[in-house]
Nucleic acid binder design. Structure first.
Lengths: 110, 110
DNA sequence: GCAATCGTCAACCAATCGGTTAAATAAACG
DNA sequence: CGTTTATTTAACCGATTGGTTGACGATTGC
């Protein structure tokens, strides 16, 4: 049986899909607009979006003939929590802490 | 080109490999001992360990004829930080922040 | 109604994945 | 020295992955 965690990590293992997620950080987008910056066919992007969707990382909503994609970070959180279980074995990890804060507090940059 | 992040997430997408990492949380282990609880051949486990190693998630050191496997969470940190970049879109994300601190400050537990 | 647009489906392809078994290498034991 | 123990390598297998092209259904605009 394929768990949620399997799907999330597998989805994140592809650079195109991570780039898509990063784009969706900015704003919700239609499938065609997601595909635009990539040198890749539309069906290829469509497949990537399906994979992200099945992993629960994005939600897709069809309005008219346009399908909107929006980020859904809840699945990411689950995976993130799993990973943090290993963090306790790092010596200090102040770097990561600072980067965490930096990202966390830069919410006005959107 | 295959980035570190690609390798880490791909490595984490397999339940057997995640189980191995969890086992290595407890203690360093020889390859044969890693393989023991799995219903799978030794070469299969050996391959999994190679994948974990290439991703930088474990380190392997050969002493005599035994190859010891130990957790190396630094690669995990990189991936974890990447993921936390998306946390800002959760309503508040205090949970994740607190867990981060909780884990981070428990450095005396090592 | 008809043409253009949005997106997916179907079929195909080469490459990779996750497993197998059998053989090879390397170190330790007696 | 020969044997056992620890691990990897090699060759193979079927399934999955990430891409392609071409056809298709659905919605919109003129």
């Amino acid at each position: 049986m394929e768990t949620r965690l399997d799907l999330v990590f597998a989805a994140l293992s592809d650079p195109t899909r991570r780039a898509i997620l990063t784009m969706l950080l900015e704003d919700d987008m239609a499938v065609t607009d997601v595909a635009e910056p990539f040198e890749m066919s539309l069906p290829a992007i469509s497949k990537h979006l399906t994979i992200l969707s099945r992993a629960g990382l994005i939600a897709q909503e069809k309005r008219g003939r346009v399908k909107w994609c929006k980020l859904d970070p809840s699945a990411l959180r689950e995976a993130s929590v799993w990973m943090q279980g290993f963090g306790q074995f790092e010596p200090v990890n102040l770097d990561a802490f600072e980067r965490f804060l930096e990202v966390e507090l830069r919410d006005d940059s959107v």
